[in-house]
């Protein structure tokens, strides 16, 4: 079922148009990666879908309703979004950061209820951070910090989670840690994930659907095997590569730009 969609979406910064007339729909309970070269509009697309950026034309629909007609907190109860490398004061304890995720469920003066507490507990459990609850953000490793941000977004109880390059600045171990966590959340809680990824191999390993963008338009959209081919990689990134299929997953070996 398509519960999240964008229709004829265009957007830009100032006069520069970065997204050109994009129509996409997303099924429930899938992981989708958006790939493409720098400046192709991946992040802009994600920002529009998460209403961080107002599109110049077109609409984003959630369960058939246009999100421009919804309140900020109503959207936040269904859509979680994490920008690329978010920043916070280093002295915030993990459980406080996660508790901020309850904000869209609260009115200005309402207090923290038992349900809020249980949800925060659940989010910390799901991300494996129970033991780190009193640790401060600045004391965590890069991977743990990213997990803490994901826990915060989970505490919103969203149906769909939008992530802009969730693995940037992480070493390969922490990259896997974060992506395996998303995979686990996807299978165990039915969380729908749409993320912008730079690493094509990780994107193809962890997502059922790849969307490739170039110059503000969607150029390819399909399963990893269909999108990740030597011709496509050359067309999109101008890089020569060899495709390796092993143990059911597909990876590209890059040969260079010459």
């Amino acid at each position: 079922m398509n519960f999240f969609a964008c229709e004829n979406l265009s957007a830009g910064y100032g006069r520069k148009e970065v997204l050109k007339n994009i129509t996409l729909s997303f099924e429930k309970e899938r992981i989708t990666s958006v790939i493409g070269p720098n400046g192709s509009g991946k992040s802009t697309l994600l920002k529009c879908m998460g209403r961080l950026l107002k599109p110049s034309a077109g609409c984003v629909y959630l369960d058939g309703r246009s999100i421009s007609a919804m309140t900020d907190s109503a959207i936040a109860r269904s859509v979680g979004i994490l920008p690329q490398s978010p920043n916070a004061p280093g002295d915030i304890p993990v459980h406080c950061l996660v508790a901020y995720g309850r904000n869209p469920h609260k009115k200005a003066l309402s207090s923290f209820t038992k349900e809020d507490r249980e949800t925060v507990e659940w989010a910390m459990h799901a991300t494996g951070l129970e033991d780190k609850r009193f640790m401060r953000l600045g004391q965590l490793s890069g991977g743990e910090r990213q997990r803490a941000w994901i826990a915060m977004a989970l505490a919103q109880r969203p149906q769909i989670l939008l992530l802009d390059e969730p693995t940037t600045y992480l070493d390969i171990h922490h990259q896997f840690e974060v992506l395996e966590l998303l995979e686990k959340l996807n299978t165990s809680c039915g969380l729908t994930v749409v993320m912008v990824m730079h690493d094509l191999n990780l994107a193809s390993k962890f997502s059922g659907r790849l969307i490739a963008m170039k110059e503000g338009q969607v150029v390819l959209d399909g399963c990893a095997k269909g999108v990740l081919t030597e011709e496509n990689i050359f067309d999109i990134f101008r890089v020569k590569s060899r495709i390796v299929d092993m143990d059911g997953s597909r990876a590209a070996m890059y040969m260079g730009v010459a």
Binding site: V79, P86, N87, Y100, G101, N103, Q156
Partner: peptide
């Protein structure tokens, strides 16, 4: 006093704050 909660969330950055439903 009322604003303190919002100030905490604003410190996470405008994008994160908007993502958390803050106008």
């Amino acid at each position: 006093g009322i604003g303190a909660r919002y100030l905490n969330i604003l410190m996470l950055g405008d994008d994160v704050a908007r993502g958390l439903g803050v106008s």
